[in-house]
Every structure is written in structure tokens, then in C-alpha cells.
């Protein structure tokens, strides 16, 4: 008994999902009624509420339907959708390029070639490229590019109250406590190493 009930619900979700992928919009209540064979709007209303509880779809402030997991019904209900039109296209809409993964702020990001090994413990080696974001506010724990008393360096930034220190990730180097001046040029957001 329970199985057939669930099966029925699944087939209804499939109907709605098919409508959504075919016409690119969610159906109206009367359209749901037509496709599921439910004659009263109240029955449709109950079905919609049930599906909203399952997060298959959502209702906006005016009560109109917004797709929920229906855009990718496979994941939620576990039914494999055969004949889903162009899955590649649908699924690839929400992918990141390597560029946008590495670069949050394209206008403020600079490249820098690393020459020293003071951050080798953090996985940054000589010859690596690091991406430096000049627009971000440096936080304690960030790797930063800084000018300390006239010298340039790349270190972990550690802030505790008023005290600021630059900590290397290599035991051969000593932490730096700026005596006169500390200027932070940017925050390291990524490191890129190409092998071949």
C-alpha cells in the first residue's frame, strides 16, 4: 500500500519535472491538475504542499511555484531519469572555471613568482606562482605579501591584539616582528605550480 502511494508521488514529480525541463518554467496549479489527473484545485494544493515539504519545489511570496530539487530530481528521490533532455547542458550551467576558482577579485589580483623557500612548509616553493589579492583585508592566519622595514617578504600574518608578527613556514627562518613599519601589499589567495 505504502509502496504504491510513494510510486504515485514519484510519477507525479516526474510529470512536473518533465514539464519544467520541457517548457523552462514551473506549471500552474491547473496545469498540475491536468497532468496528474487531479480534478480539484484543493487536491493540487495538498500535493504542492507535500512536495514543498520534501523540498522538491518551493513557493514564493505570492504562492507561485519555484523549482527545488526538481531541476535535478535524480539526487533527492533516487529515481534515475532516463530521457532527461541534454543532461550535460543542464548540469554544466553551475560549474566554475579554474580561473574563477582561483581568482575572486579579478581587478585586484596580481601574479608573483616566488624566489625564496621561507614558506615551504605551507607548500609554496621557489619558482611557484602565487596569486596576490590587493583588495582583501588581511586577517590573522592569512599568507600575506608585506614590506617590513624596507624589505619584501611573504609570511603568515599573526595578529594578537596590538601585536603583529610575520611567521615563516620553514624552521630555518625566524619570525619577523616589524620594528618601524609594516605595509601589507596583498593577501595570497592561491598557489599555482605547473609540472609539465
Amino acid at each position: 500500500m505504502k509502496d504504491t502511494k510513494e510510486e504515485k508521488l514519484r510519477s507525479r514529480v516526474r510529470e512536473i519535472s518533465r514539464f519544467y525541463s520541457r517548457s523552462g518554467r514551473m506549471p500552474s496549479f491547473s496545469e498540475i491538475g491536468e497532468m496528474t489527473g487531479l480534478r480539484s484545485k484543493n487536491a493540487v494544493y495538498k500535493l504542492v504542499n507535500k512536495l514543498a515539504a520534501l523540498k522538491v519545489l518551493e513557493k514564493d511570496a505570492k504562492g507561485r511555484l519555484i523549482p527545488g530539487s526538481i531541476a535535478s530530481p535524480v539526487k533527492i528521490l533516487g529515481t534515475v531519469e532516463a530521457g532527461f533532455p541534454s543532461p550535460a547542458e543542464e548540469e554544466l550551467v553551475d560549474t566554475l572555471s579554474l580561473d574563477s576558482l582561483l581568482i575572486q577579485n579579478p581587478e585586484a589580483t596580481f601574479l608573483l613568482k616566488v624566489s625564496g623557500d621561507s614558506m615551504s612548509g605551507a607548500g609554496i616553493l621557489p619558482g611557484d606562482m602565487v596569486l596576490v589579492d590587493k583588495g582583501q583585508t588581511p586577517k590573522s592566519g592569512d599568507i600575506v605579501i608585506a614590506e617590513v622595514d624596507g624589505e619584501w617578504t611573504m609570511k603568515y600574518l599573526k595578529k594578537r591584539g596590538e601585536n603583529v608578527a610575520l611567521i615563516p613556514a620553514n624552521p630555518n627562518y625566524k619570525p619577523i616582528r616589524p620594528k618601524k613599519e609594516l605595509k601589507i601589499a596583498g593577501v595570497v589567495t592561491a598557489v599555482v605550480r605547473k609540472y609539465r
Binding site: 601574479l111 608573483l112 625564496g116 605579501i145 601589499a185
Partner: peptide
């Protein structure tokens, strides 16, 4: 070349 300006500091 990569479309990003290169900062020339030795670190």
C-alpha cells in the same frame, strides 16, 4: 602570457 600583471618583488 597570463592575463594578470606581475608583481616584481623578491619573496
Amino acid at each position: 602570457r597570463l592575463g594578470l600583471p606581475v608583481l616584481n618583488v623578491k619573496v
